[in-house]
């Protein structure tokens, strides 16, 4: 059977239509909307760069931007180190290891709503488990309120999100670890390498393709986190834990400031684009593919 040039495109039509109408279309529309004032139920009004000017002259927005960068800056290394550590642990061939693999993965598949609610309970100063334990075993009168005080709220969210997602990255690292041929370790053992040396000179370099992949998805994950904020702090107190994506949601669907929210989305888009560009640019310097 002979294929014409058009044949593959015919098969691609459903996907392309979806892409154009449900992805690219809304993206372009949001781009246009970002130059308007638009409350959804009435026709948009063109205001040029008004939304962008408002954004960059707003102290709140600068704070939100800073929160977003802190969130990514701590979440990404945090979740990667935690995941790698867990992956190294469960990579051991011990009895019952599958149980632990499952256990560490459990928070990933648990609904983020339940996790948010349960951690809020644990961290509740009046009734919470943590506070009860601490007051029972240590003589500390009062722990700070980890969700209720502006200086801790964002970091608490980061911690809980790392706790929730580490299992996912762990599975990826585990797959990477099991791809490393055993022969290298055997050779290193014969040469008298210590455990640390094996990790530093065999595991880490050979794991870099996986690490690169994990890095990218962790960055995307960190910029997309929304549900946990929604459930645990609602961006408060006083914007202390509001990140870009949460602010976009609130402005678009609570305040019905679709234009303003669209402008914010484009800023988020630019941030993601810059990160991705940097990643690919510096990839060659540290990622080694074994041939």
């Amino acid at each position: 059977m002979k294929y014409k040039k058009i044949t593959p495109w015919l098969f691609l039509i459903p996907t392309l239509l979806g892409l154009v109408f449900f992805r690219l279309g809304p993206m372009l529309a949001a781009g246009l909307a970002s130059f308007t004032r638009w409350n959804v139920f009435s026709p948009p009004k063109w205001i040029g760069l008004g939304n962008y000017i408002e954004l960059f002259s707003s102290g709140t927005f600068r704070m939100i931007l800073k929160n977003t960068l802190i969130f990514s800056g701590l979440f990404v290394p945090g979740v990667m180190i935690a995941a790698l550590f867990l992956a190294l642990l469960v990579n051991n061939r011990l009895r019952g290891m599958t149980f632990f693999r499952g256990l560490f993965y459990l928070p990933v598949i648990t609904s983020v709503v339940s996790i948010g609610v349960i951690w809020s309970w644990i961290l509740s100063p009046r009734f919470g488990l943590l506070y009860q334990l601490v007051s029972k075993f240590f003589n500390i009168a009062r722990l700070p309120s980890f969700l209720g005080q502006p200086e801790y709220a964002l970091y608490t969210l980061i911690f809980v999100y790392v706790w929730k997602m580490a299992g996912y990255q762990m599975i990826l690292f585990l797959a990477g670890l099991q791809n490393i041929p055993q022969v290298y370790y055997e050779a290193a053992t014969i040469d008298g390498a210590s455990i640390w040396q094996k990790f530093r000179y065999i595991t880490l370099p050979l794991l870099t393709p996986t690490t690169f992949f994990v890095l990218i998805i962790s960055i995307i994950m960190s910029l997309k986190t929304f549900e946990l904020t929604y459930i645990m702090t609602q961006g408060g107190p006083n914007y202390a834990s509001t990140t870009l994506i949460y602010s976009i949601y609130v402005n678009a669907f609570k305040h019905f400031r679709m234009g303003y929210a669209s402008a914010m989305s484009y800023i988020l888009f630019i941030i993601v684009a810059v990160f991705t560009y940097l990643n690919f640019k510096y990839k060659k310097r540290w990622v080694h593919y074994s041939e």
Partner: peptide, 28 residues
């Protein structure tokens, strides 16, 4: 108009007038 935004209502309870009055209760 814009009440939910300046007042800080429901999902945005941590902001606006609601947010700063919370800070008053915290002694901040």
């Amino acid at each position: 108009i814009g009440w939910g935004e300046w007042r800080g209502y429901a999902d945005t309870g941590g902001s606006g007038m609601n947010g700063v009055l919370d800070s008053v209760t915290n002694g901040e």
